[in-house]
């Protein structure tokens, strides 16, 4: 009984993650500049990667057919999810900062750019 509940919770996370990834991909196409697209990409970080990995961990833990290996799979998926949670923003920070410093992409449309003002723009 409890195994069924856990497995369906994992499956729900997986399906929700698929939907969110789809939305993120649509956002990447529809948004008009680099910075807005970055937001579409962060949608896929938590909703589209962290939660599906958690869901996969739940599914593997609730599948007795896997034997001892289910703990290995579940454990490594769990660790991967949390490490991703901590490291993914570092990539976004580096991308955003480098793009703004090098001015390779204008943040247009924009209603205010205080970073540009403070840097002596």
């Amino acid at each position: 009984m409890i195994e069924e509940v856990v497995r369906y919770a994992g499956l729900a996370m997986l399906v929700a993650g698929g939907f969110i990834n789809l939305v993120g991909a649509v956002g990447l196409i529809r948004f008009r500049n680099f910075y807005l697209r970055l937001h579409a990409a962060t949608v896929s970080t938590i909703g589209g990667t962290f939660y599906p990995l958690l869901g996969l961990a739940l599914i593997s833990l609730s599948t007795p057919e896997l034997g001892e290996w289910r703990f290995f799979m579940g454990g490594s998926l769990l660790t991967a999810a949390f490490i991703l949670l901590m490291l993914a923003p570092a990539g976004s920070h580096a991308l955003a900062r480098a793009t703004h410093r090098a001015s390779v992409a204008r943040p247009e449309p924009v209603i205010a750019d205080h970073l540009e003002e403070d840097r002596g723009g």
Partner: peptide
């Protein structure tokens, strides 16, 4: 804090002073 801000969709930390 910076990681939390960036990980929530809709806000991205661009630089820090």
């Amino acid at each position: 804090s910076a990681n939390s801000i960036t990980n929530t969709p809709g806000t991205v930390v661009v630089d820090i002073d």
